[in-house]
Amino acid sequence: MLLWTVIRRLIYSVILVVAVLVLNFLLIHLAPGDPADVIAGEMGGATEEVLASIRKAYGLDQPLYVQLWVYLKAAAGGDLGQSFFYNAPVIDLILDRVGATLLLVFTALGFAIVVGTTLGVIASRKPTGIVSNLVTVISVIGYSAPIFWTGIMLIIVFASLIPLFPISNMYDVTKSVGPFGYALDVAHHLVLPAFTLGIVYLAQYSRLTRASMLEVLGSDYIRTARAKGVSERKVYGRHALRNAVLPIITIAGLQFGGIVSGAVLVETVFNWPGLGTLAFDSILARDYPTILGILFFSAVIVIVANLITDLLYRVADPRIRMAK
């Protein structure tokens, strides 16, 4: 039963991926100006020779549906076009950077989920206590502060006042000695960017956990657990939390695109060599194939993440697991 669900979701995901490719294709043609110019990445500035080769490669002299077919066929083979700015295949540029972005996103997400739910659970024990108020304050601030501004504030603080953590780049060649030294150095560099990105979601998850715990704690099955003689620690940790995390899984899945978006800004602030800085650089250079490639690739990341959360949710909630 679960296998069928997985297969159905997989097919649906593939359709979504194709849809994103079609959107990219349409964007190139909807943009003002000659598509060849757009692909060359220099509005009106490319040489006639380059433009001719683009027209040939993309079949731009043929009907639109043929062009779309050419585009999709190339993408299926992993060809997302050529960056004329970097003079390299877009897919290579992306694969080179995607690891750094995923590292940043998952560290931030892990931090937000672990610390956020913990704070939320503590806050739910005393709905009017200090931790509860702290959760409220953090969540309002985390929601209202522009993420890049938080990052810059941290840079100002950590650049001169408390020089504990590096404020730029992913590693320092002089300090990354050996694989272990490299990992440690990357982790050291990761602290501030991951914190900046994570704090926004930590704020949301702590508030959500608190609300969801309070709701669950008032439910009849918690009363049953207490009537059985379950200890308070287990009432919270086993009976309540299992139910209270369900909305967190949903939200984290739905927000994944937002987290990737946040990563773009955070990477730019901290010079983290991921897809975000690549996107920023290609926008400055008007390198459309690269920026469209990044849009496509990050959509694929979101689709995969949604697939995973969907399956995770089915495992966590027997009511859904059985339903379909």
Partner: peptide, 14 residues
């Protein structure tokens, strides 16, 4: 599934 900021960046750039 389109990361909103990236999508907006593409639209504004184009």
């Amino acid at each position: 599934v389109l990361p909103p900021l990236l999508f907006a960046m593409v639209l504004v750039t184009l």
